[in-house]
Amino acid sequence: MAPARSVYQRDTNRAEKSRAVRKTGDRSVSADVLVQQLINGITLGGLYALIALGYTLVYGIMLMINFAHSEMFMSGGYVGLFVLKALTNESLVGVGTVAFFKGSSIGLIILFAMVFLSAAIVVGLLGVVIERFAYRPLRHAPRLAPLISAIGVSIFLQNAVLLWVDSKALPFPSVMPVVTVIDAGGVTVNSLQILILVTTLLLLAVLDTFVSKTRIGKAMRATSQDREAAGLMGIDINQVIALAFFIGPALGGIAGVFHGMYYGSVKFDMGFLPGIKSFTAAVIGGIGNLRGAMLGGFVLGILESLAAGFLSAGYKDVVAFAILILVLIFRPGGLLGESVVEKV
């Protein structure tokens, strides 16, 4: 953890000094800031990418935008928080267990593996249930119907958490120590930022291999190309769709836990902004394309950070959506999008 900031520790000398440095060596300082902003952007982009994968996976198979996905992300944050609280509650799991979890690095790894796994599984199952009851009955309805249903689910989930859990933001306990891994010339990278990046890349690699190499992946691709033909070839469509609705929300759930850990709190409406941004990222990258969602997430995260850092914090959303419009004008299929097949 960073040291507590307090008046008594205030070091005005340092501030004066660094300002003097700024005057003499402006270029080197701004290079540091640039690198730091890129790191901020990559971390934020990793979160966007994780969520965007869920949008793009579901779209690829169902050709529908799952607007309830932002609430999968939010639910992940809450499930992660509750599991973490339960596993570090001494009266629930015993003093020894808590000491083991908190005391050793192996314990911490096991603890957080359990937190992430349970968030992924619970939210994944939630996704499957939602698909079964809110989308499957509308599978042959006009395309607008499941979209509206998705918005309904989103509002329902938000309000369910609001009423049954809490309307206030809940602090996310900082059980995992966040250590500064790199600290070079004003640029700092902490362990959590690295964890987010590594997890995101790892999950994409696994998902990409899964979809392109395995039999079930092949079934998913076939369903994505032509649902009815795939069904005629003996593929269980319902299973494939349910799987997509498990994996997508599970990834969103993991992103929710990261969001809680990174920003230190969860709130019932926390999904809204990241949800919209990640959807934008998925569209920028080419919706339906897994690598595109990843690329879109990072592009958006980095551009947002640069805009906030070098223009003004107020402009970051303007930049994010201006990029979306530009991409839609010049590459309607997205950066990595396939040429759009007429399916509407």
Binding site: V33, G186, Y263, M270, S305, G309, A313, K316
Partner: peptide, 15 residues
Amino acid sequence: DSDFNALVTKIKSLS
């Protein structure tokens, strides 16, 4: 907003 990291970096550079 929940992400202020870009702004924080800017603030840090100005001390």
